[in-house]
Amino acid sequence: MSEREPVTMMAAPIHLDYVFTAGVAQSKNLHGLEEGKFIGQRCPKCKKVYTLSRGSCPTDGVPTDEIVELPNTGTVTTYCVVNVPFAGQSIEIPYICAQILLDGANLSFMGLIQEMPTDEVRMGMRVEAVWVEPDELGPTMASVKYFRPNGEPDADYETYKEYL
């Protein structure tokens, strides 16, 4: 009957609009990023300092009320060199994705490493954060442009072996 081809496919997009509320603990972290600072939260029982804390200690289950300002420097505990292109990639390959343990923190987080050849990255490498320009700082991890080697000698394995 139809001049046109029969229908065989149907677009069925799923589109969910959320409003994400960061909550008290993450808002403190985000506020720190907005000011160009890393914020940690210390557990009153085990004294561990969590970066990007969700507001409670996963070991002791108590609120991590004490706010600790952390320095700009840290240690690469482990890393991955990304060579594979994928949809939505925003960074030119190859690049280094590393777990970074800030000095004084007891939890690492993922960061981008730049300003060095990708084949020279190593565990224990000392790095520092490079922030965006002050007028570009916002409540987002995008306020940290990347980390780069800070020139210090590599950290001793014993200092970060618990954080791999």
């Binding site: 496919m9 997009p13 609009d17 959320y18 985000l30």
Partner: peptide
């Protein structure tokens, strides 16, 4: 600290047979 909120869109562009 102020409590932050942000819009977050999750979308799957499915085409089904």
């Amino acid at each position: 600290a102020e409590i932050y909120t942000a819009d977050h869109v999750l979308e799957y562009p499915y085409l089904r047979s």
